[in-house]
Every structure is written in structure tokens, then in C-alpha cells.
Design a protein around this nucleic acid. Structure first.
Lengths: 337, 337
DNA sequence: TTGTATGCGTTATCAT
DNA sequence: ATGATAACGCATACAA
């Protein structure tokens, strides 16, 4: 089967290429009858306008880049589900880029995107506190960027986040109300903006309820599961916390494992609460108290903001920042011991 | 900032467009010095070869379509992680298409792909037992397709699956060995090839160990969570199974909920085992015995098969079928009551 | 309503 | 080692 294109089809049907084009574009003037004849024949011959020729011609790709740390993660996969729905509706495809929390990869992905392969970017960032010139370059090319969850404060762009400070505050308060005296806070990368906001909520709640803020109880974890395990284990052995506030789902799981191995019972000896998008949190042993972010909605909203930007151009006086609410769901892991 | 292109850059540097192109392509003859000069200037001016012009010229997109039922699903998100790694290595991007188990969507996606937007397709299918002419059309255009996990038996294409029959057999045997007399099998869509293979393993194990195969104990579930809940609940009330073999993770979770609500204790009154990619299965209450598929590897392998096909062309005497092994991991949910 | 001709930005071929 | 030119497939301005 040799390749078909607009010219061949035109010859086949004894019309001009422009007529074919018109049949597919919809809005141009064209006789209804010829249009139908063309579309029918096109279907038969399996002709579809070559997307690269169209893109080149129109300087549009109808693609959106989604840049995230990982896919196999409840929060992100739910967010993708959400934004995929919107982008699909609008007739756009999504290109997924997985940074694995590697800042260099992120930079390299974004640099790639200067080649026109996407019309816009939705990202959840990694590696803050760096020079973001690479992002500015993209913006200067009029490729809009929308952030969700993990944002850069120093970049002017639409953003979707949750009320992290408040949730963190009320989560900590919940632990205090449950009688915890020594609450550890588990963080992945202290310096990241999201971490520090959550930490602030934690610290302020401690202060408000007259609990001391102890530096040692903030455990700065990383991406290495084993290291985290050891960090947390050591913390248990050294400081004997009676409450754990994990700012990231994964760290709560690690804590469960540590507690199991050290024979520490939850919630009798330690209460655990975590930011988490895990749908089966109620099925854990014990059921995990979570601060649940509306991941799916965050994805949709981010996509909507992006389309707004695409429809309006990147210049916007003050980029919109949508703040959605997380939900504290109390379960057994923080029940009265 | 006005758009830059190869001609403008050429003028800027007093060289010809071809020289610029050569600087970027790598293999062509070009003076090392001019090459460096060009690349430097290109970087400064944020020039990158327009990907659509290149694609048009080369009749390659360097994109792979990934068509799957859902993203927020442990198995699929892990698989995506795996195949993303390979495709990235090869310099390809992935376009994600989410069918939501809707056959019409799948058809419409694949029909779209005839427009050249991707060079190949990796898919986990939905809606079997249909006419797959739409797929043949794609193949005729020399766009290779690779299946993983949920395959179509009647399409000749490379495939990656797991040893579903065996795992299902040995899973069932495990339940029998644990003393179960009445084992229910939970399936999503009986008629799907994957389901029937797993069901065959179940049935044959029953037979081999002289247990009756009872039709009523095969619960044909769907995508509606509530309906599934009711189906399973009713089954418990009517047939009082003492063993549950879920062919899909989600159904195991529903079973946990049902058992909780009916005050049926696991594993004392009923033992549960499930196909599942859940990493935190050990943390469930009780820890879930799983048949774990190597989701990440399946993704990588599928990607590798696709690149093989791309490098060789679609014509292949007998398409390769890779069968990976799942692993039965015994946990508390099937422990001695 | 339809046809003709041009250009989108790149790369490959051929020439120098 | 470099430059000129044609072609990839399509969509539009303009002509008819």
C-alpha cells in the first residue's frame, strides 16, 4: 500500500487539493455534496491530513507537555487522569515527561520543548532554588506554563495548589488533640517551597498549642527508600515520637514498615497522619488518617488554566492562582490509643 | 521576540541553511569550528530545528502512542514508568491515550493515529470480540503495534503478557491448600481473553484437586464500583464462599470492604488472594496475598519489542510473544485461620 | 463553489 | 567543507 496524500486523493477524485483541504477543515465554503464525496473516499482510502504538514503550516502542535516527577504515584496518576480528560475534550494530546525528581532532566526536557513540539506545558516541578532561565526562554517563545502542586514561587505563571498551610496546621492540631506530645514531621527535601509551607503549618500549630518545636523531629528524607527507612528507624529509637506527620504518602508507608519492624503499635504508641491520595487508605492496618488532596481536580483545573492562557496568549497582568481544599479524613491511625 | 528559523540564523551567521542543518544533524561533513560557532549562536538565540518541519521532511514523528484503559491504576502507571524509560532512552516521546475501557474511544484514538502523529503504538486493549479492522488499517500503514497484558488473540503483533494461566492455577491451588472449600472467582468481563485464561487456571486447579466448579461462584463484575460491591455482597450472603480469588486488584479491595461491612473476618472466615501490583499490599489489613505481575518490566519489554519492529519494519514472520512470570506472594490474607 | 500557486522550516541531493 | 535547490504535505490568499 503506497502512501496516500492530498494530491493523490485530489487526482483520484478529480478535484483540487484545496477542495480536499476544505472538506476536512470544516469552516471553508464547500459544496455539501462534494464534501461528503471527499470524506467518504478519504475514509475508504484511509486518508487523513498529515498532522505534521498541518502543524508546520499552522504553527500549532495541539500537544501539551506534562512534566512530573513520576507516574506510578497516586497523586500524579490521578492528576494525569484529570488533565487528560480536559485536554482530550479540547482535542489536544498529552506528552508525558517523567523527571524522576532529577532537576537536570527537567531542564533538558524543557529545553527540548523550544522546538515547537508542544503548545503549552503543565508541570509539577522538582529541584527548586535554581536558576530558572530555561523556563523564561520557553515563556518568551509564548509557550505558556501552568504549575500544579509543586510550584516555583519566583515564576509568574498560573498555578494550582491546595491549602497546604492550613491542612498542615489542622493536621498537626489533630495530632495534638489526640494527645501526642512529640510529633515528628517527615519531609522530602526541606528546602522545597511545598515542604516549607507544610512545615510552617506544622510549626505554627505546635506553637499555638504550646508544644516545643524541636529541630531533630523534622526528618529530612530523600528519594532513597532504604535511607529513609533508616532515618525514620533511628528517629524512633532516639527520640521516641508519639506522633508522625508525613508530608508525603510514601514516608507514611515507610513509617508503617518501621513501626512493624520495631514492634511499635499504631495508634497505641504512635499516631500517624499523612498527606496522601491513596484511595484504599481505609484498608491499611491500621486505616491511615490522611490529608487528601483533590488530585484529579487539580489536574483538570491546571489544564483549564492552560487553555485559558492558550486562548488569551501568555501576557496576563496577574496570573491566576487556584487554591483547592484538601480534606482531613480521620481514621484509625490517629484514634485514641 | 520574533520567531527564529534556520534561514534567519543562517543569515545572521553568514552561512547557508544547509550548514546549520549539518551542525545539528551530527553526521554530515562539517568543519568542527563552524559547527561550534553555529551551535553556540543557536543556543544564544534559542534556536532549535522545528520539529514539525523535520518530521514532515523525514516522515517520522519520534512519538509513540500508549493506549491504556486508565492511568490511575497501579499496574498501568508502573507499566508506563517502565516504557517511558525505554522510549526516552531512544529519544522518543510518549503520547498517552486513556480509553476508560470504552471500546469506541479506543477505535477513535487508533483511527486518529493514521494521521502520522506517531511511529508506533503500545496498547493494553479493551473491548475484545469486536471487529478490529481499524487496527489492520493502522498496520497496513506500517505503524507497528505492540500489545501488553490485555491482548487481542486474533491480531498478529508482538505481545507481552504474563503466565496468567499458571499463576491462576497455582493461586487457586494455594487457596485449596489453605483449606478453602468454596472458592469464588471475581472477574471483570468474563469474555475478555485475559479473564478467560485466568478463569481456566482457576477451573483446572479446582478440577485437579477434586473440587467442584460452580458457575455461581464466578462473579462477573464490571466497572461500576457500587454494582460490584453489591454483587460481591450478595454472593457472600448467598453462597458463603471461604475463599476469594480476585483476578483484578480493585475487586479485592471491594471484597475487603464487603467483608468489613458484613463482619466477615479475613483470613479466619474467608481467605483472599488477588492479582495485584500494589506495592503496599503488606500494609493492608490484613496483608494481601498477591499474584504480582512485573508491571514495570512488562512496560519496558513492550517498548523494546516496539523498537525492534520499528527498526525492522512491520513484516515479521512470527511476531514475538514475551511471557514474563508473575509471582505469588503469600501474606496474611490467606494465612491459616 | 472550486482551482492555482505559494510558503511553512527543514533536510537531502547535487554541485562547487 | 560549504552552498543552492527541490521536496516533504498541507492550508491559505487570491483568482476564476
Amino acid at each position: 500500500m503506497d502512501r496516500i496524500n492530498i494530491k493523490k486523493l485530489a487526482k483520484e477524485l478529480n478535484v483540487s487539493p484545496s477542495t480536499i483541504s476544505r472538506a476536512f477543515r470544516g469552516y471553508s465554503d464547500i459544496n455539501q455534496e462534494t464534501k461528503e464525496r471527499i470524506l467518504l473516499a478519504a475514509h475508504k482510502l484511509n486518508y487523513q491530513p498529515n498532522v505534521y504538514a498541518s502543524n508546520l503550516r499552522e504553527m500549532k502542535s495541539k500537544n501539551i507537555a506534562v512534566i512530573i516527577p513520576e507516574i506510578a504515584n497516586n497523586f500524579f496518576s490521578q492528576a494525569i487522569d484529570g488533565l487528560e480528560r480536559i485536554t482530550r475534550q479540547k482535542g489536544y494530546n498529552i506528552l508525558i515527561f517523567r523527571t524522576e525528581n532529577d532537576f537536570d532532566k527537567q531542564v533538558s526536557f524543557i529545553n527540548q520543548l523550544n522546538n515547537g513540539s508542544v503548545d503549552g506545558v503543565i508541570m509539577s516541578a522538582c529541584g527548586e532554588a535554581n536558576d530558572h532561565e530555561y523556563l523564561q526562554r520557553l515563556l518568551r517563545k509564548n509557550i505558556p506554563v501552568v504549575f500544579f502542586d509543586r510550584v516555583y514561587d519566583d515564576i509568574e505563571a498560573p498555578k494550582v495548589t491546595t491549602n497546604d498551610y492550613e491542612s498542615s496546621f489542622s493536621g498537626t492540631r489533630h495530632l495534638i488533640e489526640c494527645g501526642c506530645q512529640k510529633i515528628a514531621h517527615l519531609v522530602i527535601n526541606k528546602n522545597f517551597s511545598l515542604s516549607s509551607v507544610r512545615m510552617a503549618g506544622y510549626r505554627d500549630a505546635l506553637q499555638k498549642y504550646a508544644r516545643p518545636f524541636e529541630k531533630e523531629l523534622v526528618l529530612d528524607c530523600g528519594l532513597d527508600h532504604k535511607k529513609n527507612y533508616n532515618t525514620i528507624k533511628k528517629a524512633f529509637q532516639t527520640w521516641k515520637p508519639d506522633g508522625i506527620f508525613a508530608s508525603v504518602e510514601r514516608l507514611a508507608f515507610t513509617t508503617y514498615h518501621v513501626c512493624h519492624d520495631l514492634n511499635i503499635s499504631i495508634p497505641q504508641q504512635v499516631k500517624i497522619l499523612s498527606f496522601s491520595s491513596l484511595e484504599i487508605a481505609p484498608l491499611l492496618n491500621p486505616a491511615l488518617t490522611t490529608i487528601t488532596q483533590p488530585a484529579y481536580d487539580m489536574g483538570s483545573k491546571a489544564a483549564m488554566l492552560l487553555f485559558k492562557a492558550l486562548e488569551r496568549g501568555t501576557d496576563e497582568p496577574v496570573p491566576e492562582h487556584i487554591i483547592l481544599k484538601s480534606k482531613l479524613i480521620k481514621r484509625e491511625s490517629t484514634a485514641a490509643g
